[in-house]
C-alpha cells in the first residue's frame, strides 16, 4: 500500500486526484476528532470538509520527510481553534455538558444510551480543553506519544506525562459522577 506521505507528495506535485485516497483513509478519524469536542454532527462534518479544503489549498506547505498523519492533525487543530474563535460568544454561553449528552443520545445507537457511556462523556466534557484534547488524541485517535508530541510541539516525555495526568483527572471526575 502506498504510504500517506507518498500520496501527499503526489498531491503536492499536481496530482491532486490522489487526495481522494487520503480522504478515504482519514475522513472518519478527523470527523470523530471534531465530534468528540463539539458533539455536533453537522458542524463536525463542515470542519472535516474544511480540513481537506486546506490540504488542497496549502498542499505546498507539506514538507518532504514529514509525517502526513501529524500534519493533518495539526491542520485539524487549527480548524478547531479557528471555529472556537469565530463562535466564541456562542460557545461561552452554552452548557457543553448538555450538548454532548443530548447530541450523542440523538444517534439512535442503542449502545450509546448506556449510563456508563453518558457518564464518561459527561466527565470528559468537564475537562479543560487542553486536557480533553490530549485524551482525544491518545485514546480516540490512538496516536503514539511521539506523534502527539509532534502535533502539540512538545517533547515525547512531556506528552507522556500530560496524557497520564489528563487520564488521572478524568478518572477522578468519572468517579465523582458514578
Amino acid at each position: 500500500m502506498i504510504s500517506d506521505e507518498a500520496l501527499m507528495m503526489k498531491v503536492r506535485s499536481g496530482d491532486t486526484g490522489k487526495l481522494s485516497l487520503l480522504f478515504e483513509r482519514y475522513n472518519i478519524p478527523i470527523y470523530n476528532f471534531f465530534l468528540k469536542f463539539i458533539g455536533d454532527r453537522e458542524i463536525s462534518q463542515d470542519l472535516t470538509q474544511n480540513v481537506f479544503f486546506r490540504i488542497l489549498k496549502y498542499n505546498h506547505s507539506f514538507k518532504e520527510g514529514a509525517s502526513f498523519k501529524t500534519w493533518i492533525y495539526q491542520i485539524a487543530r487549527n480548524v478547531r481553534i479557528d471555529h472556537y474563535k469565530k463562535y466564541k460568544i456562542y460557545n461561552s454561553s452554552l452548557n457543553t455538558d448538555n450538548i454532548n449528552e443530548i447530541n450523542f443520545s440523538e444517534n439512535h445507537d442503542p449502545i450509546e444510551k448506556s449510563e456508563e457511556i453518558l457518564l464518561i462523556q459527561k466527565a470528559l466534557s468537564k475537562m479543560p480543553e487542553d486536557k480533553k484534547e490530549i485524551i482525544v488524541l491518545s485514546q480516540f485517535q490512538e496516536l503514539r506519544y511521539k506523534e502527539i508530541a509532534e502535533i502539540l510541539n512538545i517533547t515525547e516525555n512531556t506528552a507522556r506525562v500530560k496524557v497520564h495526568r489528563a487520564i488521572k483527572e478524568l478518572s477522578v471526575l468519572y468517579k465523582m459522577l458514578v
Binding site: 475522513n27 472518519i28 470527523y31 449502545i111 464518561i120 487520564i167
Partner: peptide, 21 residues
C-alpha cells in the same frame, strides 16, 4: 477509565461529506 473510554464508539459521517469533497 480505559474500559469506559473504549466503549464510546466512533461514528461515520453522513454521505454529504463525501459528496461535498
Amino acid at each position: 477509565v480505559f474500559g469506559e473510554l473504549n466503549k464510546i464508539p466512533s461514528h461515520k459521517p453522513d454521505i454529504a461529506l463525501k459528496e461535498n469533497f
